[in-house]
Amino acid sequence: MVDRSYLQNPFFEYLKWLKTKIKYQAKYKNLKVGYMSRLINVVFGQYNWLGNNVIMINSSIGDFSYISDGSVISETEMGKFCSIGPNVRIAPGKHPTHTFVSTHPAIYSNPDYCMKNFQTKDHHNPKRNVIIGNDVWICANAVIADGVTVGDGAIIAANAVVNSDVEPYSIVGGIPATFIRKRFKDEQINVLNRSKWWDQSLDWIEKNSDIFLDIEDYYRFHTK
Rank of each mutant, 00 (worst) to 15 (best):
T120W: 08
P96F: 08
V54N: 07
H98Y: 09
I84D: 12
W49S: 08
G79N: 05
P111W: 00
F81N: 15
M78D: 05
E77G: 07
E75H: 09
D122H: 00
Q119W: 00
Y47C: 15
H98F: 07
D112Q: 04
F118S: 06
Q46D: 15
K116P: 00
I57R: 01
S83A: 14
P111A: 13
K80D: 02
F44N: 04
D63W: 05
T103L: 07
Y47L: 13
I132E: 12
K80Y: 04
C82G: 13
G79D: 10
C114R: 01
M56K: 06
S102F: 08
L50N: 14
N58F: 12
S59N: 03
G70K: 02
S71A: 07
I55E: 11
V88W: 13
P86G: 15
Q119M: 10
K127I: 01
D63Y: 08
G93N: 08
I57E: 10
I90V: 10
S109L: 07
W49G: 06
I90F: 02
S109M: 02
N58H: 05
I90W: 01
F118M: 10
I73D: 06
V101H: 13
I73V: 12
S71Q: 12
I107T: 13
I90K: 03
F81Y: 12
E75G: 02
S83Y: 06
I84P: 08
N52S: 15
T99Y: 15
A106P: 02
M115T: 13
Y66H: 14
N117W: 00
N52L: 02
N52M: 09
S83N: 13
V101P: 01
N129W: 14
N110W: 00
N87D: 15
N52P: 06
D112G: 00
G79P: 05
S60Q: 11
Y108W: 10
S68G: 10
S60H: 04
R89S: 15
R128G: 04
